[in-house]
Nucleic acid binder design. Structure first.
Lengths: 252, 252
DNA sequence: TGATTTCAATTACGCATGTTATCTTGCGCA
DNA sequence: TGCGCAAGATAACATGCGTAATTGAAATCA
């Protein structure tokens, strides 16, 4: 729950009671999954909302002939879909990338929040709106950007989201995605993902080896990806994010 | 408001009071726009939520070099973004396609709904979740489908959404999108949109002339677009949509 | 420790789609 | 009624990216 609270508090200041509520929700009903495993499958009835406590996961859709599109990555602190259970069936699947710990949030939890915890409601709306904005940006990414821009853009996004949750150290971070994952997320072939990564490496924009990514110069990577961070809505009401607020935020 | 209520009631039965609330919200503060005009611009502070009363509009994003991506189409009865005003600035623009009438919904309106009208809250969550699902499907469309599939898929979606709001007559409907609009939405060039439409016409899947689209055989068009309507979540709690429920729903 | 599988790298070749350009058709407006 | 411009159609040519196939390097596991 550390990552979730840290993230939400970038946006709304939560009360001690709010903290307690979130803390409780994210320690009850925790499940663990291995890597490369489905948490939820398309067609199932949505039952709970999933909060990623640790590990990476993704949301994906698949065509009958096997073509697969990753439509979102979930990092620690991400909520899969606030209030999904009002829908009859899932229109996509959620699968793990690495080992993952998930907290299941019930309908009752959301009812309770809606009834008496307006700041959490606002924070969840913010989460929902940002996720929608990310999905739009992915549409833009796939529709208009070249392979190189697209890849750079995706890496910038992941980088900033990790940094917001305190999951980067210096200029590097864990990066468990395979080239196949990146291909499914960018709509490129694996071969072309490989070519594109080589190009980014050759330009000195990334250092990607094993399961670690380093970004020596974020500004240059952002330029290459035509990346404008506005859609992440990482600031609020005049509170700007700077290095200090990112690294110093105390977390209950 | 007719289209909005008709649509929402596919999902939740609203009380007479709910009707009155929605009716009031959509008759106060109505604005009219000409075709090809911006309603909201990227970077602005979101002030109200927009409900499209009549006409077609779109949500789009643009890169500095002019590349433009339409990330959503708005049809009558669509709400642009429930609760956007909690964000500091818009990450995209909203522009009209045709003449458009818009009702502006205030923060106070949403507070009032949240406080005392749980069915409307649920209905708005449904609207939000469906819009998110549509955006995901667009990501899939751009990332995995060929030009022909992509175009067929888009046309199926628009067709079904129009039908849900009672805006089709028989097998045809108004269709004000230019090939340029379709290009911006599908991520294809205008030339290739033209080629693709020719191909759909030659296959007898669509009849598109002037500003009118006819779909002689929806099932075949859906096959061509690998279209699975599940993501539109047009049914709920065992209530299936059939021809009757679509055409006979009484609207206040 | 070797066997097995997954992931990354690389090459050769083909095609779906983009680009540029020109021409035609349709349509709003004086 | 016809001018003027936007939208649609068509053709010739260019290319970014996909496909298929092979090899090598890591990770996983018996």
């Amino acid at each position: 729950m550390a990552s979730l609270v840290r993230k939400l508090e970038q946006f709304v200041r939560l009360s001690p009671v709010d903290h307690a509520i979130l803390n409780r929700a994210s320690t009850e009903r925790v499940r663990h999954f291995g890597p490369r495993v489905d948490i939820v499958r398309e067609g199932e009835k949505p039952k709970d909302v999933h909060l990623i406590l640790s590990g990476w996961a993704c949301r994906y859709k698949q065509l009958e002939d096997g073509r697969r599109q990753v439509v979102a990555f979930f990092l620690p602190g991400d909520i899969c879909d606030v209030n999904v259970f009002i829908l009859r069936e899932m229109d996509h699947s959620i699968g793990t990338i690495t080992q993952v710990a998930v907290a299941d949030l019930s309908r009752e939890f959301f009812d309770q929040v809606a009834a008496g915890h307006p700041r959490i409601v606002t924070a969840f709306w913010w989460e929902t709106l940002v996720n929608a904005a990310i999905q739009r940006e992915w549409t833009m990414n796939l529709g208009q950007r070249t392979a190189l821009e697209r890849m750079a853009h995706l890496l910038c996004e992941i980088w900033l989201r990790l940094r917001l949750s305190g999951l980067t150290k210096g200029d590097s971070c864990d990066f468990p995605l395979t080239q196949g994952d990146l291909a499914d997320a960018t709509g490129l072939s694996k071969v072309h993902v490989n070519r594109t990564l080589q190009e980014l490496r050759a330009a000195g924009l990334i250092v990607l080896k094993g399961k670690t990514l380093a970004v020596p110069n974020l500004d240059r990577l952002m330029e290459a990806g035509l990346f404008n961070p506005n859609y992440l809505h990482m600031d609020h009401e005049g509170r700007q994010l700077d290095a200090a607020s990112i690294t110093d935020t105390a977390v209950g």
